[in-house]
Amino acid sequence: MTERHRQDGPRVVCAGDGFISSALLARALGRELPGVRTEHTDTGWPTEPFTGVDGVREASGDPRALAELVRGADALVTHLAPVTVQVIEAGAGTLRAIGVTRGGPVNVDTAAAERAGIPVVNLPGRNLGAVAEYCVGAMITALRGLPSAAARLSAGHWDAEGFRYERTGPELRACTVGLVGMGAVGRRVAELLRAFGSTVLAHDPYADPDEARRAGVRLVPLAELLAESDVVSLHARLTDETRHVIGAEALAAMRPGSLLVNTARGELVDHRALDRALDTGRLRGAVLDVFDPEPPAPGDPLTARPEVWATPHLAGASTQVAEESAERIAREVGRILRS
């Protein structure tokens, strides 16, 4: 569906979806660039899954239709639109900016944009607040056994046994939480945990020791973190070194009764090894918001386990993420168009 708004000013294509809509992008641009002309198109994501398209990843939409829209446009702003070579070539000569409301512009052929001399701007850390709040909320919820208790009550069973001492779980103030990765999200999680009184450890070979100290975090080797933590929360980037950083050996090294939380990348965890570790009863459970593959295959045993709280990649979804992303990308694109 496409609609045109004719005013005086630069022409910007707004390619939105069900989370960050073209209307939301256009309103933010209108506040930033009075007189802007916007053209709108929206895809069916998240109802329709994103895919890889013509060399770009995690994209939603038809690049041919988008290519037609960007001809003669001054800028393109989007969340998930497939900004392929075809789209960039169609906009070459007039496009002065491509704005992507994501932490990384994986849905843009950045090499093609660079060849065409079109700057690509994105929003690192755009959802760190939402992800950090999810992590801390999930820790509280899972440590206390609330997801399974709620599921039993929904099924009609009043489970008074949840008050037995051996079934109860600890408060965060009594927990040591280990963060694997101390990037923007990890630092924000550490800040929130300090308010609860948790002891916070972190493993990150690239972290600044002074910055970690200011955040109240003690940097330790991974082996020490796994052995000492009641909760292990993953915030590392996916690299060859971090792929399956939580495998059979790491799971065996975790403190008995501990909880694993992954909101970063599914590939950080060897899911088969996690399933086997949960079989032994060594771990309290796991919170998984990301998977490998994603979505998980039908019949994936992890998502059916009562000690696993699994959500469909929702940690970064909040009203504020959508609204603030639109405002931030409008400022970035506006700065370029005014220059």
Results as ranks from 00 to 15, higher is better:
residue 153 L to N: 02
residue 153 L to P: 00
residue 154 S to L: 12
residue 155 A to V: 06
residue 157 H to K: 14
residue 159 D to Y: 01
residue 161 E to N: 12
residue 161 E to Y: 04
residue 162 G to C: 09
residue 162 G to F: 09
residue 164 R to P: 08
residue 165 Y to L: 14
residue 166 E to D: 14
residue 168 T to S: 12
residue 171 E to N: 10
residue 173 R to C: 11
residue 173 R to H: 12
residue 174 A to H: 14
residue 175 C to K: 03
residue 177 V to R: 08
residue 177 V to P: 06
residue 181 G to P: 04
residue 182 M to P: 00
residue 184 A to C: 00
residue 186 G to N: 07
residue 188 R to W: 00
residue 191 E to H: 12
residue 192 L to Q: 05
residue 192 L to E: 02
residue 193 L to I: 04
residue 194 R to D: 12
residue 194 R to K: 14
residue 194 R to T: 10
residue 196 F to Q: 08
residue 196 F to C: 11
residue 198 S to T: 13
residue 199 T to P: 03
residue 199 T to M: 07
residue 205 P to N: 11
residue 205 P to Y: 12
residue 207 A to K: 06
residue 208 D to F: 13
residue 208 D to C: 13
residue 209 P to Q: 07
residue 211 E to H: 12
residue 211 E to K: 10
residue 212 A to M: 09
residue 213 R to K: 14
residue 213 R to N: 02
residue 214 R to L: 13
residue 215 A to Y: 09
residue 216 G to Q: 07
residue 216 G to T: 09
residue 217 V to N: 12
residue 217 V to D: 09
residue 218 R to E: 14
residue 219 L to K: 05
residue 220 V to L: 12
residue 220 V to G: 09
residue 221 P to I: 02
residue 221 P to N: 08
residue 222 L to G: 11
residue 223 A to T: 15
residue 223 A to H: 11
residue 224 E to N: 05
residue 225 L to F: 10
residue 227 A to W: 09
residue 229 S to D: 07
residue 232 V to G: 11
residue 232 V to H: 08
residue 234 L to A: 03
residue 235 H to D: 05
residue 237 R to P: 11
residue 239 T to Y: 04
residue 240 D to A: 14
residue 241 E to G: 03
residue 242 T to K: 03
residue 243 R to Q: 08
residue 243 R to I: 00
residue 245 V to G: 14
residue 245 V to K: 03
residue 246 I to T: 04
residue 246 I to M: 09
residue 246 I to G: 08
residue 247 G to Y: 00
residue 251 L to C: 07
residue 251 L to Q: 05
residue 252 A to K: 13
residue 253 A to G: 06
residue 255 R to M: 10
residue 256 P to S: 12
residue 257 G to Q: 09
residue 258 S to Y: 02
residue 259 L to P: 00
residue 259 L to I: 06
residue 259 L to H: 01
residue 261 V to N: 06
residue 262 N to V: 05
residue 262 N to Q: 06
residue 262 N to E: 01
residue 263 T to R: 03
residue 267 E to A: 15
residue 269 V to C: 04
residue 269 V to L: 06
residue 271 H to F: 08
residue 271 H to I: 03
residue 273 A to T: 15
residue 273 A to N: 08
residue 275 D to M: 01
residue 280 T to Y: 14
residue 282 R to S: 15
residue 283 L to Q: 13
residue 283 L to E: 13
residue 283 L to W: 04
residue 283 L to R: 10
residue 284 R to K: 15
residue 284 R to F: 03
residue 285 G to Q: 05
residue 285 G to K: 03
residue 285 G to E: 13
residue 285 G to V: 08
residue 286 A to N: 01
residue 287 V to W: 01
residue 292 D to M: 00
residue 292 D to A: 15
residue 292 D to Q: 08
residue 295 P to W: 06
residue 295 P to S: 07
residue 297 A to G: 11
residue 297 A to K: 05
residue 298 P to Y: 04
residue 298 P to H: 07
